[in-house]
C-alpha cells in the first residue's frame, strides 16, 4: 500500500495541482486572487511562490476572459486550470464554457481539443446568500461536451482532479465549500482515477441513496441513523455527473429495490430527475418495491439567514424521513 496521511480536501486539491504542474509544463493556473491571496478559499496557497506568476496567473475580475483565454490556450496545446472564484460566477462565462469549450471538438469535426479544467467552489452553508451559494451542476449537465465532476472527499478530489487535468476534454470541477476543511486519508504522490465512475460508499440492502458532493456526508450520517431504526441503507457517491456511471446506480437499485436521490440544487430540473429516469428506464424498474423519491433543495434562491439557509437544502433528518417513508411503502 502506498503511504497515506490525513489531509484536508483543499490540501488534496492543491496537491493535485502541484503534481500536475511539476510534471507537465503545459499546465498553468488562472483565476481571480489565486496568487498572493491563495484563492478565496486558500486552495492555491503557496503555488505562486513555487511556480511563479506566469503559471499561477492572477487575472482581473473578468470571467468571460478567464474561461475564453483558457479555451484558446487549450486549443493550441496548453492544459489550463482556470478558477471561478464562486461557481455562481460561471453564469458570466456561459458562452465560453457551453458554446465554445464544450462544442469546438465536435463542431470542428474532431480536429480540435480543449483540454481545460474549470474549478469552482460551489454550494451553500457559508451564509454568503443567493449569488455565492448555489449549486450549478444541473445548468451544465445538459451540455454535451462538458464533463462534470463533484468530489465528496479529499482522496477522490486529488485523484479526480489529476484525471481531469489529464483529460483531453473540458472538465468542470465543482468543489463544495463546506468540504474544504474536511480531512481524509490521501495517498502521497500523484494518482489519477474515478472520472466516470460512481462508488458505493456504504453498502446496504434496503434502499439506495444516490447523491454527490457534500450530500454524501449527510447521506452517510442518515445511513447511521437509519441503521438504528433497522433500515440498511446503501450510499452511492456519483462523483461525476457527466459521464454518468449508470450501471453502478442500476446495479444498486436492482439489489435494494428502492431509490432515494438527494441533491442540494432545487428539485425541478435537478439532476435527480436524470438519476430517477435512469433507474425507471432500466431493468432495475422490475425490482422496484416502492416509488422513487427525491430529496432536494427548495424552489428558492439560497437565503442568507443561517436557519433559512439550512432549511432550504436537504439535511440528515430529511434524508432519514424520506428513507423511512420509502420503506413504509
Amino acid at each position: 500500500m502506498p503511504e497515506a496521511r490525513s489531509i484536508t480536501y483543499a490540501e488534496a486539491i492543491r496537491e493535485a495541482l502541484d503534481d500536475a504542474m511539476a510534471s507537465d509544463e503545459s499546465v498553468f493556473l488562472m483565476g481571480e486572487d489565486i496568487g498572493v491571496y491563495g484563492g478565496a478559499f486558500g486552495v492555491t496557497t503557496g503555488l505562486l511562490q513555487k511556480y511563479g506568476a506566469d503559471r499561477v496567473r492572477d487575472t482581473p475580475i473578468s470571467e468571460i476572459g478567464i474561461v475564453g483565454i483558457a479555451v484558446g490556450a487549450a486549443l493550441v496545446g496548453m492544459r489550463p486550470v482556470a478558477e471561478m472564484q464562486f461557481s455562481d460566477f460561471t453564469a458570466n462565462a456561459m458562452d465560453q464554457l457551453c458554446n465554445q469549450a464544450a462544442k469546438l471538438h465536435f463542431m470542428y469535426g474532431g480536429k480540435a481539443q480543449v483540454p481545460m479544467v474549470l474549478r469552482a467552489p460551489t454550494g451553500s452553508g457559508t451564509g454568503a446568500a443567493a449569488q455565492h451559494s448555489q449549486s450549478i451542476e444541473s445548468w451544465l449537465a445538459n451540455v454535451p461536451g462538458l464533463k462534470i465532476v463533484m468530489p465528496s472527499n479529499a482522496a477522490d478530489a486529488k485523484g479526480l482532479l489529476t484525471a481531469a487535468i489529464a483529460d483531453p476534454n473540458p472538465v468542470v470541477f465543482l468543489e463544495h465549500k463546506l468540504l474544504y476543511k474536511t480531512k481524509g486519508e490521501v495517498e502521497v504522490g500523484s494518482y489519477s482515477g474515478g472520472l466516470g465512475s460512481a462508488v458505493v460508499t456504504h453498502e446496504g440492502r434496503d434502499v439506495s441513496i444516490v447523491c454527490w458532493s457534500a450530500m454524501v456526508h449527510k447521506a452517510l450520517a442518515a445511513a447511521g441513523s437509519l441503521k438504528d431504526q433497522g433500515i440498511d441503507a446503501e450510499v452511492i457517491d456519483v462523483r461525476t455527473l457527466r459521464p454518468l456511471d449508470r450501471s453502478t446506480i442500476v446495479g444498486s437499485v436492482s439489489k435494494t429495490g428502492r431509490l432515494l436521490v438527494v441533491h442540494e440544487s432545487p428539485l425541478t430540473g435537478g439532476f435527480g430527475g436524470e438519476i430517477a429516469a435512469t433507474v425507471t428506464e432500466s431493468d432495475a424498474f422490475d425490482f422496484l418495491e416502492a416509488p422513487v423519491k427525491r430529496v432536494a433543495g427548495l424552489e428558492t434562491p439560497i437565503p442568507s439567514n443561517p436557519e433559512l439557509e439550512k432549511g432550504v437544502v436537504p439535511q440528515e433528518e430529511d434524508i432519514v424521513k424520506a428513507a423511512v417513508e420509502i420503506l413504509a411503502g
Binding site: D54, G68, V71, G72, L75, Q100
Partner: peptide, 22 residues
C-alpha cells in the same frame, strides 16, 4: 476556427496568444 457567437473568438485568440507567449 470560425465562430457563430459574435465576439466568441476574441478571448480565444487572446488565449492562444497567451499560450504562445508562455
Amino acid at each position: 476556427g470560425a465562430n457563430g457567437i459574435v465576439a466568441g473568438s476574441i478571448p480565444i485568440a487572446a488565449g492562444a496568444a497567451l499560450a504562445l507567449k508562455q
